[in-house]
């Protein structure tokens, strides 16, 4: 539950408007807040947006985060 809580916190950092999903513009907005370039943020968005529909849902975001925490197929 700590990981889910942390995932929710990070998702809210990105989804500042509380829409329930993250857009490419939301990621670009992080350019000043996180030490990543615009290209890297674009790359993160494309990597996490599994169905490539332009909307990064909480499920897609959390599966990317748990893979980061526990490795591929991490539980």
């Amino acid at each position: 539950s700590a990981v889910i809580e942390k995932t929710r916190e990070f998702f809210q950092i990105c989804d500042t408007e509380g829409k329930g999903f993250i857009t490419r513009r939301d990621m670009q907005r992080l350019n000043g807040e996180l030490p990543l370039s615009a290209d890297e943020l674009e790359n993160v968005f494309d990597t996490l947006d599994a169905d490539a529909n332009g909307y990064l849902t909480f499920e897609e975001f959390s599966s990317g985060f748990s893979e980061f925490m526990f490795g591929p197929g991490g539980t």
Partner: peptide
């Protein structure tokens, strides 16, 4: 294999992204 290189680059950027979120959260009081 360029695909392998691309996947590794993506993983690196993802790690950077989540690590900077982690340090951003722990940095705040």
């Amino acid at each position: 294999d360029p695909n392998m290189k691309g996947a590794a680059a993506n993983e690196g950027v993802l790690a950077n992204f989540f690590n900077s979120l982690l340090s951003k959260k722990t940095g705040s009081p």
